[in-house]
Design a protein around this nucleic acid. Structure first.
Length: 513
RNA sequence: GGCCGGUUCGUCUAUCGGCUAGGACAUCUCCCUUUCACGGAGGAAAGACGGGUUCGAUUCCCGUACCGGCUACCA
């Protein structure tokens, strides 16, 4: 699959029109892993040939997402490189000559049909059996193009700058075959594909022309894209054949799609909104509507977990391992183990990956983000060391980063909302007495270690002839505020003597009152 | 409609002709834990269907069904 003589070069070519979708990130990932596995280069090219779909900030957003994921391009509009510019809008002038070359050698032609005429044609030929008539080898005979108009008329229109596009002239009867890295040999009949527009009336290339020209100019060796592109592959194959030669063509790989969790179709932003999970990598704010769509990052995912979860949607290393670092993935990734079939997205499993990563990583890794989360809730954390200790203590209980607010917040801010309802019904004077004495005993404790505190507590329960079980929950409520958190004596240890006693005293008053 | 692709537990998947079909998520039961988790043990749960090929098919071939993608001067 990999030609030893050629340096592997891959590209991700998004169009900057909005939030970066899960599937897009996975395409980046597979590109990146393949390139790095083979010691190659990963290029990011911006496909902004559709000026009507320009969205401010979308390009910068893509870079932020890749940056967050740790999938840094070797070449891009911001990273530079020897094959720039990396924005197709800035390469506009380079495409026309290839399109003209195709016209000159008879593989393409000028078409002067207006959008209205096109629509009229489609309506006229639309039938039940053929709901979407194609501008193909039959219909082009009835349209206004350089095949039907006669040389003089064409020359006149051209000299008058009449609006026109350049369309590929699909062969009437030819079988187009290529070998996909994932699917093996795939064949198409040329008559089934329409005469795609190559160069638009505004002079911009369509994706079809641009992808071929730029992949050639940028010396791309392997071209990965979503499966939705498979039907237009024959156009690209033909363009390669006409323009640069099939021996120059990159190896294609059409990646399986990421599907909706509940049934039919590829996963969309709508599904996330509908079912309450993110679809974009990071928050995306539509500049027109100012509406923000939450991303995986802001939902509290770790980038390590995010890419780990994504890579497992369509690839595995053949073992029962599911947790991989980026570096491990680079080592192990091969196209041979990429699946053909689409994978349903499962948010529960995605969360599981994040939970695993929170547990495995040292807390220092995500400490700054947790600090931000806490501070956003008005919980200030003066001491880094203390925060570190707390995070290690509670991380087993956190699936998403915001879970730390509940699990760690009470260590730094005395709980005000205390679940006294959980203890009040069984409260009595004996317990009152017990806690009164326990505060004294704690105050005199020789050391403030959880073992010591637990021993002191147990001894006192024996003296008072109360089962420890009846007092553990009240103590927890006093220190934590609710029925959650690490072992209650561990909590006391971290809280320190003064704060522990203060909280006991406070709740005691609440319960008595 | 046409073309192309896909099809193993509910979900993600292992299996490259020998299978008592393995793992993970989710789910259920139990243990651990005088909270919530973590952890541990166990249960239930799958080869779309029909034909071939073969000593033997989940695996190879062909049909059918179902699902998906595409069918724009969007990518």
């Amino acid at each position: 699959m990999v030609n030893e003589n050629k340096k592997v070069r891959v590209r991700f070519a998004p169009s900057p029109t909005g939030g970066l979708h899960l599937g897009g990130v996975r395409t980046v990932l597979f590109n990146y892993l393949f390139a790095k596995h083979h010691g190659g280069e990963f290029v990011l090219r911006i496909e902004d040939t559709d000026q009507s779909r320009f969205v401010a900030g979308a390009e910068e957003y893509i870079f932020d997402c890749l940056n967050w994921c740790g999938l840094t391009p070797d070449e891009s509009p911001v990273h530079g490189g020897a094959y720039g510019p990396y924005r197709q809008s800035e390469r506009k002038e380079s495409y026309r000559k290839y399109a003209e070359q195709l016209v000159a050698d008879g593989s393409a032609y000028y078409a002067f049909d207006t959008p209205a005429e096109l629509e009229e044609m489609r309506n006229r030929f639309k039938t039940a059996e053929s709901p979407s008539p194609q501008y193909n080898y039959i219909l082009r005979e009835q349209m206004r193009n350089s095949l039907t108009l006669g040389e003089e008329e064409v020359a006149r229109l051209l000299s008058e700058d009449a609006a026109h596009v350049i369309r590929i002239k699909m062969p009437t009867d030819e079988t187009i075959v290529f070998t996909d890295m994932i699917r093996g040999e795939v064949a198409f009949h040329s008559s089934q594909t329409d005469d795609k527009v190559l160069l638009k009336a505004d002079g911009m290339p369509t994706y079809h022309l641009a992808v071929v020209v730029d992949d050639y100019l940028m010396k791309i060796t392997h071209a990965f894209r979503g499966e939705e592109w498979l039907p237009s592959a024959p156009v690209h194959i033909l363009l390669w054949k006409y323009l640069f030669g099939l021996d120059q063509m990159p190896q294609w790989a059409h990646l399986p799609l990421i599907l909706k969790p509940d049934g039919n179709g590829k996963l969309s932003k709508r599904d996330g909104d509908r079912m309450g999970f993110p679809v974009f990598a990071m928050n995306w704010t539509d500049p027109k509507t100012t509406e923000t769509t939450q991303g995986f990052r802001e939902r509290g995912f770790l980038p390590e977990a995010f890419i780990n979860m994504l890579v497992m949607l369509g690839w595995n290393d053949g073992t029962e391992n599911e947790i991989f670092t980026l570096q491990k993935l680079v080592d192990k990734f091969t196209m041979e183990r990429v699946h053909k079939g689409g994978a349903r997205f499962d948010y529960e499993k995605a969360k599981w990956f994040n939970h695993e990563w929170i547990k495995h990583l040292p807390a220092s890794h995500y400490q700054p983000r947790v600090r931000q989360l806490l501070e956003a809730e008005g919980i200030s954390v003066p001491d880094d060391g203390q925060l570190q200790k707390v995070l290690e203590l509670v991380k087993d209980r956190c699936t998403l980063l915001p879970d730390f607010v509940q699990q760690a917040g009470f260590f730094f801010k005395t709980p005000t909302n205390i679940d006294t309802a959980a203890i009040k019904p069984k409260w009595d004077e004996k317990k009152n007495l017990f806690f009164g004495e326990m505060m004294l005993a704690f105050d005199l404790a020789p050391s403030w270690q959880h073992e010591e505190l637990e021993r002191t507590f147990k001894e006192l329960t024996a003296v008072h002839e109360i089962k420890p079980g009846e007092l553990m929950l009240p103590l927890r409520i006093m220190l934590v505020g609710g029925k959650f958190g690490p072992g209650v004596f561990h909590v006391a240890e971290v809280l320190g003597k003064e704060e522990t006693i203060k909280r006991i005293k406070f709740t005691l008053q609440l319960v008595q009152g």
